[in-house]
Design a protein around this nucleic acid. Sequence first.
DNA 1: CGACATTTTGATGAAGATCAAACTGGGTGG
DNA 2: CCACCCAGTTTGATCTTCATCAAAATGTCG
Lengths: 267, 267
Amino acid sequence: MESNAARLVRKLSSFMVLSPEEKRALEQACSAVHRFAAHDDLVQEGDPTPGINLILEGFACRYKLLPDGRRQIVGFLIPGDLCDLRICVLKYMDHSIGTLTSGRAALFPRESMTMLTERFPRLTRALWWSTLVDEAITREWVVNVGHRTAFERIAHLFCEMFTRLQAVGLTSENSCELPVTQTELADALALSSVHVNRVLMELRHTGLVTFRSRRLTILDLEALKSLSGFDPLYLHQSNGLQGGAQQSAGHQTNPIPADAQLGRSVV
Amino acid sequence: MESNAARLVRKLSSFMVLSPEEKRALEQACSAVHRFAAHDDLVQEGDPTPGINLILEGFACRYKLLPDGRRQIVGFLIPGDLCDLRICVLKYMDHSIGTLTSGRAALFPRESMTMLTERFPRLTRALWWSTLVDEAITREWVVNVGHRTAFERIAHLFCEMFTRLQAVGLTSENSCELPVTQTELADALALSSVHVNRVLMELRHTGLVTFRSRRLTILDLEALKSLSGFDPLYLHQSNGLQGGAQQSAGHQTNPIPADAQLGRSVV
DNA sequence: CGACATTTTGATGAAGATCAAACTGGGTGG
DNA sequence: CCACCCAGTTTGATCTTCATCAAAATGTCG
């Protein structure tokens, strides 16, 4: 973890290779770091839209509350995720952002974001890409909650989180921190925590996955993917599971190279 | 329906008042109109991303197919909706777009979209807003499918569709065309068509809603909203249920007036 | 009129919710 | 260092919603 922006840079790199100036610009923009506590709200539904937070360390989630008090988590936020690039346009938040753990976030002043996007059109495109991926993830969640069994749902979410964490360098060989309680999993997957518990045990017994004391270990990724119908296409990581794009652009045909000419970006 | 862009203009107007030049520019951009048939695919998952379609007439949906052949509809597209503004950035479609009825669509050439956004920054912002609303709708669908009963789900979807159709002038007093079969409703709501049918009858018997021969009639909107937990906030229509913004900006405090100064748009 | 899609009805079964209680383990303070 | 507490996990028993299968009724369009 060299700099604050490192995770974000790494994530964006799985879409396009960033130039040194672009990286530097990102790093400079996220200097205003603040800490947050676990189980707290960063932003609440109905609030006028605040600034843009970049998660540096720790986990958070987007959620919506129902009148009866139950909540639906509609997305997880991990280091390198921007909480809401889009917020600049809308007047009010239509959902809340809550933390799952303690951690650190950088607040992007709106002006520096504006400056960034004016001076670096390629960066604009990369940030835009990241919002589109968020959207694609949400769509996949509709499918997950709508049409998959409890077993598939959990397996699918594990594949997704592992893949996303891999892209920001937060996995080891076959495991990663996933500091989420079973109740929170239940809220995300629209299941009861009791049922989540039973299915987790099933996953353990079949030797696919262990999930204990906040750590997810995937023993058979291929099986997990095929059982859950996980296809990483929707994450739009050109590199697939390799994530990262640590290597230079040379033999890597997929990510857009740093000197590519692009039609001036749109929207 | 004076011009092709009229519905889009009307929808965007519920976010900000557009100037005559901006309207004219939009109208000129969507000249390449083509017809589509019912129950056909406009775009298929995995396709390289095509141009940007604007639905002028007819209904369509976004959907994803599961390995077992079942499908999840992840969003409805109505006249005035852009099928995928975002498509310019991503390499492949992560979902398909299928038509529900026959109709007409305008294909925005990518270049004219680029031109549009370069010359009219306020328009850029309005288009951006529309993509954010799409995203917010998808999030609400996660909640709908995840945490609401069949009765609430259907009621909620009806509220949403009525409100959205109202914003583009496709409703009468208390009813609208909604050319969707019960099976398609089922695919959208993650229910079986049998169950949809039963709940629809219940809705009829309780005197809240009728849905017959593709026409939705809402007999008691307030009751429907409160029973389903529908809060139009997530649609981000400043005007609330009034939609439209046909009237000039004068006494309407909410939408951003045509001469507003805005910080150069971002992303 | 006949063919086909769509809606309606009935009967049965299964996935997962709910309720309640016991167990685990890490942290705190006495 | 132990007792306690609290959050989180595990287990068991029962109940509900909704899926599934099958078939009849209705509607629509060439």
